[in-house]
């Protein structure tokens, strides 16, 4: 499965994001991107790197929100049970954020497809 799709989809899902957060460091795709673009023009390299950097930061921000919401819940639930219904406002915020991040994912992936072409695009995202 393409790496970014895996990271994005998995990290956008609730839960299981504590461990995955570290995968979303800005360095996760950048080295691969630099290899793929080794012979490309500096301008193309800069554009592609900026797109991937932006995307990874958006996903990382989302992941931090997930950790915050679920972390708060887990911390309080350890003391006394809290119905998941108490998380409804947090879930609503995360759902809205997911929608926004997914839009960015689509836009950036399509921009990269146009910029890199299908072969390099697959080389970047294929795990």
């Amino acid at each position: 499965m393409p790496v970014l799709a895996t990271i994005t989809v998995a990290s956008l899902l609730f839960g299981g994001s504590y461990e995955k957060a570290s995968l979303l460091s800005p360095a996760s795709l950048q080295p691969k991107l630099r290899d793929i673009l080794d012979d490309a023009s500096p301008q193309l390299q800069a554009t592609a790197i900026a797109l991937v950097d932006h995307l990874e930061k958006s996903v990382a921000d989302y992941n931090e929100s997930v950790v915050s919401v679920l972390g708060d819940y887990a911390a309080s639930a350890m003391r006394t049970y809290r119905s998941p219904a108490t998380m409804a406002p947090g879930f609503a915020r995360l759902d809205a954020l997911r929608e926004s991040v997914f839009s960015e994912v689509i836009q950036v992936r399509r921009q990269l497809l146009k910029l890199l072409g299908p072969d390099k695009w697959r080389a970047l995202f294929d795990g």
């Binding site: 799709a5 989809v9 497809l113 146009k114 299908p118």
Partner: peptide, 8 residues
């Protein structure tokens, strides 16, 4: 999602 994403 992956399949459709790579189709221009």
């Amino acid at each position: 999602f992956d399949r459709l994403s790579e189709d221009p």
